[in-house]
Amino acid sequence: MKHVKAQPDHKMLEWSSKFEALADNAVNSRLRQFYQAGAVSAQASIDSVQLLAMDVETTGLDAQADSVVSIGVMPFTLQRIYCGNSLYWVIKPASELNEKSVTFHHITHAEISDAPTFEQVLTPLLEAMAGKVMVVHYRNIERAFLDQAVRRHLGEGLEFPVIDTMQLEARLHRQKRGWFARLMGRSQPSIRLADSRARLGLPAYHAHHALTDALATAELLQAQVATYYSASTPVGELWN
């Protein structure tokens, strides 16, 4: 039984035309090439598109002041996850590691001493992203930090559509709670990655490793679509 209501057609974001404009306006050749690869139509069914799960670990939560310290990407479709084509980078951050961030992602000063800079991994990252729909759990991290990192190195930002599995969970539970639960002040269930996976019967993974979290996010979207949507759902109803 499907629980999540589709968004009306007029709310669908059509990224294909936006990418054409971004390609025309991009100054840097790498960004221009990324946008020229195009974006899928908002009307395309989710089972027909190439997806790329992504997770970014950072030195903090402020995209303006903090930096990317690792990136993991995992290509997949609704039918299959291509673990053999995954990519993972530890990156020398532009800002200092701090004790709190190290306790989360366990990346130490020794690991970043010989790590590449963000600029050095940008080309293969953009190549991996080109033509695919990004899938993340909490888009405010991945999209904001990548945009800021690209701005620091290239002088212009990076825009791309994302399916946010956290937002899909929030949408589901907001609808399921109903007006009476909201009136009574009942709290919403946790929509963190591990808790969202557990509700759908997915196994627990060690958190805060970029590649593992990318895999966890890919599996979560597959389960969400199978449980709450359908394979024919237009991608425009899911992305931002």
Rank of each mutant, 00 (worst) to 15 (best):
S196T: 07
I107H: 06
M74N: 00
S16R: 15
D55R: 01
H173S: 00
A53C: 10
S70Y: 10
A170G: 01
S190Q: 05
S17R: 10
T77C: 02
S86L: 01
D147P: 00
H3A: 13
I112T: 14
T233W: 01
A210P: 08
A39D: 09
T233I: 14
A204K: 09
M54F: 02
L154N: 06
V49S: 09
L238E: 08
K5C: 10
T165H: 03
T108C: 03
L122H: 03
H209W: 01
A130V: 10
E159G: 01
V68P: 03
L168R: 00
H106D: 11
S48V: 02
A144K: 13
Y229T: 09
Q50E: 15
M129G: 05
A214F: 05
L31K: 06
W89T: 05
F160Q: 11
T59K: 06
L126A: 08
A42M: 05
K2A: 11
T108F: 00
A218N: 04
S29V: 13
A53H: 04
H208N: 08
R174F: 14
R32Q: 15
S41N: 12
R139L: 13
L202F: 04
A6Q: 11
S67D: 14
S67R: 04
C83A: 12
A216Q: 09
R171G: 01
L193K: 06
Q120N: 13
Q50I: 03
L193V: 12
Q64R: 11
L146F: 05
T59A: 11
S230A: 13
E20C: 07
Q120S: 13
M54I: 15
P124H: 02
H3R: 15
Y88L: 10
D24H: 03
Y35R: 07
L125K: 01
V162Q: 04
G131D: 14
Q175Y: 02
A218C: 04
A63L: 10
T59H: 06
V150P: 03
A144V: 06
T103N: 11
